[in-house]
Deep mutational scan, measured.
Amino acid sequence: MTSCHIAEEHIQKVAIFGGTHGNELTGVFLVKHWLENGAEIQRTGLEVKPFITNPRAVKKCTRYIDCDLNRIFDLENLGKKMSEDLPYEVRRAQEINHLFGPKDSEDSYDIIFDLHNTTSNMGCTLILEDSRNNFLIQMFHYIKTSLAPLPCYVYLIEHPSLKYATTRSIAKYPVGIEVGPQPQGVLRADILDQMRKMIKHALDFIHHFNEGKEFPPCAIEVYKIIEKVDYPRDENGEIAAIIHPNLQDQDWKPLHPGDPMFLTLDGKTIPLGGDCTVYPVFVNEAAYYEKKEAFAKTTKLTLNAKSIRCCLH
């Protein structure tokens, strides 16, 4: 018999989150649709729960009410004593943790798909938090293969000092899905179709896995975050240069030392320094102006996964 890495157990509980950011409308629209008619997301033997994560922000069509829901799922915020004085999103995070967690427990949901849009030209993107997770690498390989020839990129946010504390991190297997470009507060049919297909293929993978299909060893190309880059700023902290036209919409493309990065209003080009080629992502993302992030630098690498098969009882 072929030796293989056996994944822990079959997958039982899956959640699909929309509206973690209330103005990213593809996930909101799909989740609302699936709450009314969820036939397309159901798979035999699998509990799939669509869920609106930040209903107040969705109602106002804004990213958040008090603070970013997708950055506060750490033990400090989840452990705060519940009171009306807490920011709305912290209270909501505790409610979500109660419903789908608790985080880092045996009772937490197996998989959470968190649906997002970006204003950046990132196409279909899967966000991975753990480079050693054979199950998710296999799932992402399946999704990428199923979507081809449509490109699907994998963004690895594993980093020693950049801690995200994402909404989906309460699950055993957290999956971020990011599709763009799409303006905030807008629905685009092409973007919706791409996100819908990503979810379909992900659920198909889980179904095949649960039925005992063995997935042979595989490898995927990923883009691992190195650092986030702020806009150049003046002495008052105001933005002093904008994304250069040569960099705009060039997510995932190589940016070499000396290539144009920013452009000042008086026409001066600010190039990339250093001696390493990087791959920019979230270029000129609207939501990241407040976070002082013009783009993120990534490096390209390959992740390998062992063969996996479900432990059938």
Rank of each mutant, 00 (worst) to 15 (best):
H10G: 12
A241S: 06
M195E: 00
V281H: 04
K228R: 13
Y153W: 09
Q12V: 02
V278E: 00
A171R: 04
W34P: 05
T269N: 08
G22C: 07
G19T: 03
S108Y: 10
E293D: 08
L303N: 06
L301C: 11
T125E: 04
A219L: 06
D74F: 09
N77E: 11
A57D: 02
Y153T: 08
G212I: 01
G38R: 11
T44H: 12
Y223R: 05
V179Q: 05
R71E: 14
C124N: 08
I177G: 02
I137F: 05
H21Y: 14
R63V: 03
R43S: 00
C61I: 11
A171S: 10
A219S: 15
D204L: 04
L25C: 14
H141G: 00
F113R: 02
R63N: 09
G27H: 03
C152S: 04
D204V: 02
A240N: 15
K60M: 12
L301T: 10
I191F: 06
Y223A: 00
L263Y: 07
N284E: 00
T53W: 01
F51R: 01
N304K: 14
C61F: 10
A57S: 11
I225W: 15
F215V: 00
M261A: 11
E235K: 11
I177L: 09
P254K: 01
L69S: 06
D104F: 13
K268Y: 07
H201R: 00
I157M: 15
I72D: 08
I52L: 14
I52V: 11
V175I: 13
C152D: 04
M198Q: 03
K300G: 02
I111F: 00
H33C: 07
M82P: 14
D85Q: 13
N37Q: 09
D130T: 02
K81H: 13
L99R: 12
E106D: 13
T53R: 03
D204W: 01
M261K: 03
L263P: 03
V278Y: 09
I225E: 15
L78S: 10
H5I: 11
Y142M: 03
L272C: 12
P254S: 05
S131L: 05
A241D: 06
L46V: 12
N70W: 02
N133Q: 04
D66C: 07
E9C: 08
N121P: 02
L35F: 07
H244G: 05
I220V: 11
S131C: 09
E235C: 10
S108C: 14
F140L: 07
I199L: 09
L128K: 05
T2Y: 09
E238C: 09
E106K: 13
T119K: 05
P216E: 09
Y223V: 05
V58L: 07
N284S: 10
N77R: 11
L69E: 06
K103W: 09
K163T: 11
T118I: 04
L255V: 08
G27F: 03
K306Y: 08
Q194Y: 12
A171Y: 03
H33E: 15
D251C: 15
K172E: 02
H116G: 11
V175S: 05
V229L: 02
I111Y: 02
H10P: 15
I65K: 04
D104N: 15
L126H: 04
S161C: 11
H33F: 06
E76M: 12
H33W: 07
I112H: 03
T269D: 10
T20W: 00
Y155C: 15
P87D: 11
V58W: 07
V48C: 08
K80Y: 12
V48R: 03
G101C: 07
P271S: 11
Y142T: 03
L86S: 12
T2N: 13
N117L: 04
W34M: 00
K268C: 08
T269K: 06
K300C: 07
K268M: 08
E106T: 13
I270V: 10
N121R: 05
V90S: 09
L303I: 12
L75Q: 14
D110N: 04
G79Y: 14
R63T: 11
P55Q: 11
A7V: 12
T145K: 14
N70F: 06
N246W: 07
F135L: 07
P183S: 11
C152A: 07
G38P: 15
T298Y: 00
M139T: 05
D275S: 10
M261P: 02
N37P: 06
D275N: 11
E235L: 08
Q184I: 09
I137M: 08
K228M: 11
T277W: 00
I191N: 02
I127R: 15
K268Q: 12
D114H: 07
I220N: 02
P216F: 06
A171H: 01
E8S: 13
S307V: 02
K292L: 07
R43M: 01
E214H: 09
E238L: 07
R63S: 12
K103S: 11
A296W: 07
G101D: 06
D275V: 07
R71D: 13
F205W: 01
G258V: 06
K59W: 08
I143T: 05
C67F: 10
I191R: 00
G176W: 10
E36F: 07
G18I: 01
L35V: 08
R233M: 10
L187N: 08
R196S: 06
S83E: 13
E285S: 14
A219F: 08
V179K: 05
L46F: 13
D275T: 11
K200S: 11
G176R: 15
R309P: 03
I226L: 12
E235D: 12
I11H: 03
L46G: 02
Y231E: 03
L187E: 03
K144D: 04
I65D: 08
N134F: 08
G185I: 02
M198T: 11
T302D: 01
C67N: 10
E40A: 02
G267W: 00
R196W: 04
R309A: 08
K103P: 10
G79K: 12
D190C: 06
L247D: 05
S108N: 14
E235Q: 11
L312Q: 12
R196K: 10
P216S: 07
L35Y: 07
A286S: 12
P271Q: 09
D74E: 12
H98G: 13
M82N: 14
P245Q: 00
A165H: 15
Y231S: 05
Q182H: 05
V28W: 14
H141P: 05
I199C: 07
I143Q: 02
R309F: 05
L192W: 05
E129L: 01
S120C: 12
D230R: 09
G258N: 09
S146P: 05
N23F: 04
D230M: 14
L99K: 11
T264R: 08
K13S: 08
H256Q: 11
N70C: 06
S161P: 13
I308V: 11
E211M: 14
